[in-house]
């Protein structure tokens, strides 16, 4: 497959991270990460030039809000997947938000949408 897209995952729960990794891989994407901390995410984003990112909001330490703003400034599309969608109420312009628990199909559809891949 030509031009595989690179998707950065930030998720601090290892099981959920593994699930995300598998879902996106089987949808034909290259996964960058998963990063479990914002610092790792920043490093990975610098070194791997992802085409899109899937972000958990609340991490063990801190959150990904500032990191998401950086991505937005760099023009890298992202979505949040969170069990507390209201924690993003102040985020403007409104980001793409997937409520946890997500369904694998919904996640793939949403990431494809970020990457501008038409629905097959």
């Amino acid at each position: 497959m030509l031009d595989k897209k690179r998707v950065l995952i930030v998720e601090d729960d290892p099981i959920v991270a593994l699930d995300l990794l598998r879902i996106l891989k089987s949808a034909g994407m290259i996964v960058v990460g998963p990063a479990m901390t914002v610092r790792d995410a920043e490093k990975l984003a610098r070194n791997n030039e992802p085409d899109a990112a899937v972000l958990d909001v609340r991490l063990e330490v801190g959150d990904t809000i500032a990191f998401a703003r950086d991505l937005r400034a760099k023009g890298i599309p992202f979505l949040f997947q969170t069990s507390d969608p209201r924690s993003l109420d102040g985020f403007e312009p409104k980001p793409v938000v997937l409520a946890k628990p997500f369904s694998p199909d919904k996640l793939v559809a949403a990431v494809r949408n970020l990457l501008g891949i038409p629905v097959s």
Binding site: V16, D19, I23, F102
Partner: peptide
């Protein structure tokens, strides 16, 4: 209540992910 909701949904996500991984 908000915190509990958050945790319940995280737990449900964990269970769903475990099942997804097994399914794969």
């Amino acid at each position: 209540l908000n915190e509990i909701n958050h945790r319940v949904k995280n737990s449900l996500q964990l269970v769903a992910s475990l099942i997804n991984l097994r399914a794969a």
